[in-house]
Amino acid sequence: MGNILVIAARDDWPTDRVVKVLADRGAEVFRMDAAEFPQQLTLAGRIDARRGWTGGLTNAHRAVDLADIQAAYYRRPTAFQLPKGMSEPERRFAAAQARAGLGGIITALDCRWVSDPAAMSRAEYKPLQLATARQCGLAVPPTLITNSPDAVRAFAGDIAGPIICKPVASPVLIEDDELKVAYTRRITEDDLADLRGIDTTAHLFQAWIEKAYEVRLTVAGDRLLAAEIHSTTSAGQTDWRSDYQSLSYRVTDTPPVIGDAVRRLMRRLNLRFGALDFIVSPDGQWTFLEVNPCGEWDWIQHRTGLPIAEAIADELQGVPA
């Protein structure tokens, strides 16, 4: 049986759950974080005409041969920890060498990826997600991405109902010694009256889709694990991330036509894991919002009992769905 390489931050506790499932099944796991390189993790990879990349990844407690890695789980590794005493130019140089050397060999592994890191990076782009989802047969909200106030006003005029604004990228920042989050916001007439600042960067606007509830659909390989998310508050109904205490969850089924389209989407994005968000309208129509290639899933498993860690382990071990 081959080894399973797990690449994640040490304090990523959901990854602990996957490691525990794999260990209980008797799988050989080698867990590492990029932060361990080069001071706690040694790389000695070789390639020649006879064989692909072989040689070891070694830490103080175990070693794995690159040629024996059958699968790799990639989840939020942290930056290389370089030796103290380097100058800033040396640090930049060394970090680039580490990324190209260690990262290059790891991404060259001919193994089952959950998911391929380059594919995860590419799939982070919401515009790409929306375009691909649409091509795969999923309904998407009418969307505008712009730095033009005039375009915002025109979009608001074209949409029959309300519109929302949400970040195109990360919603979180720290400023003024405080952590702040830009949640999804329903736009008011007052908001539209003063659009100063739209031209400072890209902004994303979408038609507001009437919802009965939302669905977090966690995908691991061909396994679809869907949970309804219901909120009892206005804030939670606009963006469930803003009011977790108001939420309740229920395991649900994915309609076959949606499931087929999601599998096409995942193939097109070359993802083997994703946390997808859908709005389900009062008449039962599913509208795709986004796919998070490295999305959170542990709390959904906790609240619903959906076997997500087990599904990720199945995918890493090549267990048929």
Partner: peptide, 14 residues
């Protein structure tokens, strides 16, 4: 308001 991204007007503390 002229230099701050518009979407940050309604940013919230969790």
């Amino acid at each position: 308001p002229n230099t701050r991204p518009w979407i940050l007007r309604h940013v919230q503390r969790p």
